[in-house]
Design a protein around this nucleic acid. Structure first.
Lengths: 278, 278
DNA sequence: GTTCCGCATGAATCGATAG
DNA sequence: ACTATCGATTCATGCGGAA
């Protein structure tokens, strides 16, 4: 894809379920979203009670399954609230229902929030993590692991000077061909694959939208699960973070948002910028 | 409690469910345990299949509910495996069943393992976290938050790892702050409450049999949920880490273990030491 | 006595091969 | 076709001996 061709950002104002129906089947490479949490953001979304949450979400999940490509991935950022001293179970029930619908529950990443919401309670500490749940339609899906590699830990500086005999033995246990190759894999290794725990140093700067996550979060998953020119969908796009992350990474994107003011904010932000940085 | 009086460590060799019946009702302040995960530790525990896991665990959970004091806490360390490209759901189902039994699902802590198991797969990254699930019998329970406060920008790991054994003894005898004044380094530093994310490396010694979790893990929860002289129970005590952590913190402890060899190891370790450091 | 460095191993998971 | 076993892959830590 030529660099000069700018990617498309499509903003759809309306109810998520109603608008999803217009999106073609098997057309989306990655769905990344953070839906309104149960009983959260009452002022903007009305709030969905925990007991009704799964029932409310499943029709949407059905449409998402339709529009997602067979090799695509659905990333759901969510966290259950604590109420009357207990964590609510609607997220657990949601995962079980998704499986019944035919989704595969591939993985659960943890997003560790370094600057989590302040506060003090007698029965719990501050909540510093959220679930990032990965669903897929098939066992085989697109994944570009090299795109999110991280610098190797300091241990490597000394460790890699000399490979231990066991490393050589273990690497060499494959008879014959592997020896030299494996050694070269390790020497001068500067980057390693990350884990399923994502610790973002950056802080979310957007104060307008109550549920904003740092742009680095969708960025990480967009790099991991899509390539340039692919299509990213956020059915609860809010202030547009997912769209801007996709645009800067040269992916096309579609965002659905029910609140007109948020749609306007996104559109204004796009018009103000000529370059790729939003 | 006078320092000279040593606390009791009781080791019971036998099947968890059968032995729990002999423990008095409402006698335990904290249950901290890590049961054998589904299909893990086949050589020592036979391995429990994921489909049977909840059924296997619930009778034990019922006994645990009986022996726990009304204001006590049950901390369960567990993680589901990935198989055929999917995470298994038995832990989610376990939480839902616990609630049906009358347990309150108070919180889910995340234990982030910096040195998780290596490996590479086309569809997932290394698993670097485990669930630490908190259950209670009542909304009100004993919690001593000040005992686990940390210096700003530091993790409990740093403190626990760098202390010499004697430091720990003196440290533990102090009242209040949770740290002795002999730790001059920290006396002027601002202390904050931790979050529900705990970052600790696993112990991977190349010598003795390593425990499933580092001692700092039970230490943290024993400090948080019990006071000196209280009783800690680990119904799957394994190599005894929970017991030793409790002992050094001047708590009494009971451990149940089905494998006789593990019981012997624990007993030998206790006999070898006259002081409080195990 | 410190610091440096060699080294064994850990609640892993997938794909291929064997029964 | 289905399940059991085995090999390949890979990162960080703490111990203990060496400098």
């Amino acid at each position: 894809m030529p660099l000069s061709k700018l990617n498309k950002i499509e903003i759809i104002q309306g109810d998520c379920l109603e608008e999803l129906i217009n999106i073609p089947t098997n057309s989306i490479d990655l769905i990344f979203t953070s839906p309104p949490y149960a009983d959260r953001r009452k002022n903007t979304y009305g709030g969905i009670s925990p007991v009704k949450y799964v029932k409310w979400f499943m029709p949407i999940a059905k449409e998402l399954k339709r529009v997602l490509k067979p090799e695509g991935t659905f990333i759901l950022n969510i966290k259950e609230k604590a109420e009357n001293g207990e964590r609510n179970t609607y997220v657990l029930e949601l995962i079980l229902e998704m499986k019944k619908m035919g989704w595969l529950w591939t993985e659960e990443f943890i997003w560790v929030k370094k600057n989590c919401y302040p506060g003090k309670w007698p029965n719990r500490f501050r909540d510093a993590w959220e679930r990032i749940i990965q669903f897929n339609k098939n066992e085989k899906f697109a994944m570009y692991q090299e795109e999110v590699m991280v610098p190797v830990g300091d241990w490597a500086k000394t460790r890699l000077k000399n490979l231990s005999p066991t490393d050589k033995i273990r690497d060499n246990s494959k008879v014959g061909s592997g020896f030299g190759k494996n050694i070269s894999n390790w020497i001068n290794r500067e980057m390693v694959y990350p884990t399923n725990v994502i610790q973002l140093a950056t802080e979310c700067s957007n104060k307008n939208h109550s549920a904003a996550f740092p742009k680095a979060l969708p960025e990480w998953f967009i790099r991991l699960f899509t390539k340039e020119g692919d299509v990213v969908l956020d059915p609860f796009v809010g202030s547009g973070t997912t769209l801007f992350a996709a645009y800067e990474l040269r992916r096309n994107s579609i965002g659905i948002e029910i609140v007109p003011e948020y749609c306007e904010i996104i559109k204004n932000k796009i018009e103000k910028h000529n370059d790729r940085v939003l």
